[in-house]
Design a protein around this nucleic acid. Structure first.
Lengths: 205, 205
DNA sequence: TTTGAAAACTTAACACTGTTAATTATATTT
DNA sequence: AAATATAATTAACAGTGTTAAGTTTTCAAA
C-alpha cells in the first residue's frame, strides 16, 4: 500500500510544479500571454502531458486563482485586531484596493476572467475561497449593524454595495478606465478618497 | 472631384458594413467568438481585406464600442426631465444597470475588455463617447451639491464612487460572481436594492 | 530474470486564431 | 489599347487549445 501512496505523492508534486510555473509565468508576462505550450516548456514536459494532470487550461487557471485568494486572505489576518466595525470594514477595503493594484494579474483571474468560473462549473466544485472572503465581509457588516454604527438594512444588500464599489474601483483602474475621470497620477489617491467617502457616508451619524 | 468623393463614400459603406456585421456577430455569438475570419465570411470578403479598412481587430472592436456608447446615451435622453438631482442620479444608475444586464456583450467591450483602450492609444484618439457619459455624471453630482441635497465633497471623488459602484455591480453580475453572494434569481433585485441603498445613504439628511 | 500489463509521456494532427507579404483582378487614367 | 492605381485575394507564418494514436518507462507476477 505504501507504493501507491508514494505514486500519488509524486503525481501531486508534478501538479504543484505545473501550478507554480503557471503562476510565475502569468505574474511575469501577464495573464493573456499564458499558454499551455509555454507552461509545458517551463516544466519541461510536452504540452499534452499537462492534460494528464488537469482537465483543461481553465482548470489550471482555477487553481492559480485559488492561490490568489490565499494570498489575499493573508493580508486580512491582522484585521481581527480592529474592534470598531466601521474601521475594520475600512481597512478591509484598503487591503482590497492594495491587493488589486499590487497584483493586477491575480485580481484579473479572481474577479474579472470567466475561465475560473467555467472550471468551477465543469468541476462541480464550490467557490470556497471566494465564499470565505464574502462571509468575512457579511460578518463585519452584520456586526456594524448590531453595534448600531450602521443604518439597519439587509446585510446582503450592503455587502453587495461595498464589494461592488471596491471591485468597481480596482477593475476600472486595471482596465485603464479611471484615468479618463482623473489624471493617471491621481487615480490611486482618488480611489482611496472614494472609499473613505463611502465609509464616512454610510456611518450612522 | 465628384468621383473621388464617391469613392470615399463607397469606402465608408464597406467600413460600415464590416462594423454592422461585427456587431451582429458579437451580440449573437458573444464577444469571445468574434474572429476576423468570421466577420470576413459575413461580409463576403477575404479576411485580409478587412485590414485595408481597419488597422487591426482592436480598431474594429473600438468602433463597435463607440456604437455601444451611442446605444447607452439614448437611454439617458429622458433623464433631463427629472429635476431632483438625486432622483436623476438614481435613474441614471438604474439605466446603467439595465443597459449592462440587457447588453452584456456591449458592456463587456465598453468597460471590461482592454482591446478598445489599446486601439484608442494606437489611434491617438480620445475616449470621446465615454468622456461624454462621465461628464454627464459629474454634472449631476455637482448640481446635487449646489442644491444642497448632497454632502459637499470633491466632485471627482463622489463621481468615481458612484460609477465604480454601478460598474462593480454590472461587471460582477456579468462574470457570475454576484450569484455567490445571493441566489441567482435574487441577483438583479438585490443589485437594484444596493443602488437604492447607496442613493438613500448619500442623500443629505 | 524475463514477460506482460499498466502507467507516463510524446509525436502528429486538427481546427482554430491574428496578421503580413506577395500576387492577381478590377477600375481608372493616359 | 496600354499603363497605372486601386482593390481584393491567396499563401503563409507563428501562434492557440485540444484529441487520438503511438512510444517509452515503470513495476508486479510468472
Amino acid at each position: 500500500m505504501g507504493i501507491v501512496a508514494r505514486k500519488e505523492k509524486q503525481k501531486q508534486e508534478v501538479r504543484s510544479l505545473i501550478l507554480e510555473e503557471s503562476m510565475k509565468l502569468f505574474v511575469e508576462e501577464g495573464f493573456s500571454k499564458v499558454s499551455v505550450r509555454k507552461i509545458a516548456e517551463r516544466v519541461q514536459y510536452s504540452p499534452t502531458t499537462l492534460y494528464l494532470y488537469f482537465k483543461d487550461k481553465n482548470e489550471i487557471l482555477f487553481y492559480c486563482c485559488e492561490s490568489g485568494f490565499k494570498k489575499m486572505l493573508e493580508h486580512n489576518i491582522a484585521l481581527g485586531l480592529i474592534s470598531d466595525p466601521i474601521e475594520r470594514l475600512h481597512q478591509m477595503g484598503v487591503n482590497y484596493l492594495n491587493f488589486g493594484l499590487e497584483n493586477p494579474e491575480y485580481y484579473d483571474l479572481m474577479f474579472i476572467q470567466e475561465a475560473p468560473m467555467s472550471a468551477l462549473i465543469d468541476m462541480g466544485a464550490g467557490w470556497s475561497s471566494g465564499d470565505q472572503a464574502l462571509e468575512a465581509l457579511k460578518m463585519i457588516v452584520q456586526d456594524a449593524m448590531d453595534k448600531g454604527v450602521l443604518v439597519h438594512a439587509k446585510v446582503e444588500t450592503v455587502a453587495m454595495a461595498v464589494w461592488s464599489m471596491v471591485h468597481g474601483l480596482v477593475s476600472l483602474a486595471i482596465r485603464q478606465r479611471l484615468d479618463k475621470l482623473v489624471p493617471a497620477e491621481d487615480v490611486e489617491k482618488t480611489m482611496h478618497e472614494s472609499l473613505d467617502w463611502l465609509l464616512k457616508t454610510m456611518k450612522k451619524a
